[in-house]
Amino acid sequence: MPLTFELDPMFSPALRDGITALWADVTNAGGAVGFVPPVTAEEVRPDLLKHLVAIEQGRTRLLVGRDEDGEVAATAFLTLNDHRLLRHWLWLYTVMVHPRHQGKGYGRDLMAATADAARSIEGIEAIRLTCRGGTGADRFYGACGYKEVGRIPGGIRVAPGDDRDDIVMLLPLGPGTP
């Protein structure tokens, strides 16, 4: 059964806890979402709170995917640019699908829903994201229509002696794009 997506859902303690648990579970399954495993929900919560402040300030939009049981199964945070010269594109952060749902096509569904959400925001012409090299995420995003537009060799330090490329990818939202 496909996920049900909602842009800018009403925030509640249950949603907060669902996103926090998702973030910890994705990290602990090896997902490259800002932490290195092992991580607890308590360690993730301050980063989620930063996203929530940006939502309250109108700088970030939240896309949530729920499974057939209504549980938080996927997220993406769409962050608008404050700078007047960059307002025609947005950043995509913390793209996650719960490990129990991976391999079902939900990641592609999330990326399509994200592109639809971005298209619904007046003036947005493209989505930018970064991903950690060595994880295969760049191949996944490429299959979703994103193009690599930059790479910083060793820009991400996962651990001493384990530096990864910081890969910048772009999805134009014009006609004919996914």
Results as ranks from 00 to 15, higher is better:
residue 1 M to L: 09
residue 3 L to N: 11
residue 3 L to V: 07
residue 4 T to N: 14
residue 6 E to H: 11
residue 8 D to G: 08
residue 8 D to Y: 00
residue 9 P to Q: 06
residue 10 M to T: 14
residue 11 F to Y: 10
residue 15 L to E: 08
residue 16 R to E: 12
residue 17 D to H: 06
residue 18 G to P: 09
residue 18 G to Q: 07
residue 20 T to W: 00
residue 20 T to H: 01
residue 21 A to Y: 00
residue 22 L to I: 02
residue 24 A to D: 08
residue 26 V to K: 05
residue 26 V to H: 03
residue 27 T to M: 11
residue 27 T to L: 11
residue 29 A to S: 12
residue 31 G to S: 02
residue 32 A to F: 04
residue 33 V to G: 05
residue 40 T to F: 00
residue 42 E to C: 00
residue 42 E to L: 07
residue 44 V to H: 05
residue 44 V to K: 05
residue 45 R to M: 13
residue 46 P to S: 06
residue 47 D to F: 09
residue 53 V to C: 01
residue 54 A to G: 04
residue 55 I to K: 01
residue 56 E to R: 10
residue 57 Q to G: 07
residue 61 R to K: 09
residue 61 R to E: 08
residue 61 R to S: 10
residue 63 L to A: 09
residue 64 V to L: 08
residue 67 D to H: 03
residue 68 E to I: 00
residue 70 G to H: 04
residue 70 G to Y: 01
residue 70 G to F: 03
residue 72 V to L: 03
residue 74 A to E: 05
residue 74 A to C: 04
residue 74 A to Y: 00
residue 74 A to S: 12
residue 75 T to R: 03
residue 77 F to S: 04
residue 89 W to R: 15
residue 90 L to C: 12
residue 91 W to M: 14
residue 91 W to I: 02
residue 92 L to P: 00
residue 92 L to Q: 11
residue 93 Y to G: 14
residue 96 M to F: 02
residue 96 M to R: 02
residue 97 V to H: 02
residue 99 P to V: 02
residue 102 Q to V: 04
residue 103 G to F: 01
residue 104 K to S: 14
residue 106 Y to V: 09
residue 108 R to T: 14
residue 108 R to M: 08
residue 110 L to S: 13
residue 110 L to G: 13
residue 111 M to I: 15
residue 112 A to M: 12
residue 114 T to S: 13
residue 114 T to F: 03
residue 115 A to Y: 06
residue 115 A to H: 07
residue 115 A to D: 10
residue 117 A to L: 02
residue 121 I to G: 04
residue 122 E to A: 15
residue 125 E to T: 07
residue 126 A to D: 07
residue 127 I to W: 02
residue 127 I to M: 12
residue 128 R to T: 09
residue 128 R to V: 05
residue 129 L to I: 10
residue 130 T to I: 10
residue 134 G to W: 06
residue 136 G to I: 04
residue 137 A to Q: 09
residue 138 D to P: 00
residue 138 D to W: 00
residue 140 F to Y: 11
residue 142 G to T: 11
residue 143 A to G: 15
residue 146 Y to Q: 03
residue 147 K to V: 11
residue 149 V to R: 06
residue 150 G to P: 11
residue 150 G to M: 09
residue 151 R to W: 09
residue 155 G to P: 13
residue 156 I to V: 12
residue 156 I to K: 01
residue 156 I to T: 02
residue 158 V to C: 03
residue 162 D to N: 11
residue 165 D to Q: 03
residue 166 D to Q: 10
residue 167 I to P: 14
residue 167 I to Y: 07
residue 168 V to T: 15
residue 169 M to D: 11
residue 170 L to I: 06
residue 172 P to L: 08
residue 174 G to P: 13
residue 178 P to A: 15
